[in-house]
Design a protein around this nucleic acid. Structure first.
Length: 280
DNA sequence: GTAAAGATGCACGGATTGGG
DNA sequence: CCCAATCCGTGCATCTTTAC
């Protein structure tokens, strides 16, 4: 999809881009061999120049070129070309404010393997791990996960962050991660009716009792969230493609769900749900 | 070559939103 | 609970086309 994009070029908006596609140039290479007739000569020249830069940036894996030039609402287009350099991640914390609360666990999924980080154990390895990736993807991470990690770990995550909350909103889906998952048919049976607040009490129980079943239950939940982000992004990407009727690109195939190494313990889960304070 | 009309990009500001 | 990124509509700026 990135190699079909022209919207990152100065002077090209969504209308011009659609017209370029409709009049024969579906991709960068199409454009270079036969630019559409409706564009003025200076415009064609300007696009040639920028496409050269784009191709070089893609070859070098220069994600910051695309972060600069591609408007954020189109960052989902980065996925296919950068799918081997993306990290889907989700954090659990003791509360909403980065000033009064702290991170408890983090789950990262790169499309192949999941990596988890736990406070007081290996959380300090998170910065080196996450900095390796060129693209991040989260749900409401622009507001929550990224600033939280930056504040607490004293690092800066400058990579583009494909925030699925906004991608979904643009497609008409709103109402939180769980609601979106349910509407798209990828909701989770055993976690029905469970929301993020249980992560707080699961952590409290783990710390009070030392029983790792609480931690495992929490990590299972955390990993599931991170892994589902990939499915959501693929679904969103394909829905967007369908909206570009003049563009003939194959949708991304659904990827199989990886096995989770953490087990949900229903007793721990229910005990923690009961402990959620009513004043929330 | 020029000017007006038309097309479209883009800056601005207000409203909406969900994370544990 | 609380913050600020993004969306969306509006109006202005700029480029392109057309006609003479």
């Amino acid at each position: 999809m990135l190699t079909n994009s022209f919207i990152h070029i100065d002077g090209v908006g969504d209308i011009i881009e659609r017209r370029i596609w409709a009049e024969g140039a579906q991709s960068w290479l199409d454009f270079l061999s036969a630019p559409p007739k409706f564009l003025s000569y200076p415009m064609v020249k300007q696009i040639y120049k920028e496409l050269e830069k784009s191709m070089q940036a893609l070859e070098e894996g220069d994600i910051y070129y695309f972060k600069r030039t591609l408007p954020t609402r189109y960052h989902w287009r980065l996925y296919p070309e950068f799918k081997d350099y993306i990290c889907f991640f989700d954090i659990e914390t003791t509360g909403l404010s980065a000033f009064q609360s702290h991170i408890t666990t983090v789950a990262c999924y790169d499309g192949k393997k999941t990596t988890t980080f736990v406070r007081d154990e290996n959380l300090h390895d998170l910065p080196d791990h996450i900095k390796k990736y060129k693209v991040l993807s989260t749900f409401n991470g622009k507001m929550f996960d990224v600033p939280f990690v930056e504040q607490e770990m004293k690092i800066r995550l400058g990579q583009p962050n494909i925030d699925l909350m906004h991608v979904l909103k643009g497609l008409g889906y709103k109402g939180g991660l769980k609601a979106c998952e349910n509407k798209l048919g990828i909701g989770r049976e055993e976690l029905k009716g469970v929301d993020g607040r249980v992560a707080i009490t699961l952590w409290q129980c783990f710390k009070e009792t030392g029983n790792r079943d609480f931690l495992d239950t929490m990590l299972a939940y955390n990993v599931e969230d991170a892994v589902n982000l990939q499915r959501l992004l693929i679904i969103c990407h394909n829905m967007r493609l369908e909206q570009y009727k003049t563009l003939e690109i194959d949708p991304i195939p659904e990827t199989p769900k990886p096995e989770c190494e953490y087990k949900i313990n229903m007793d721990c889960l229910h005990l923690s749900i009961k402990k959620i304070p009513t004043y929330f």
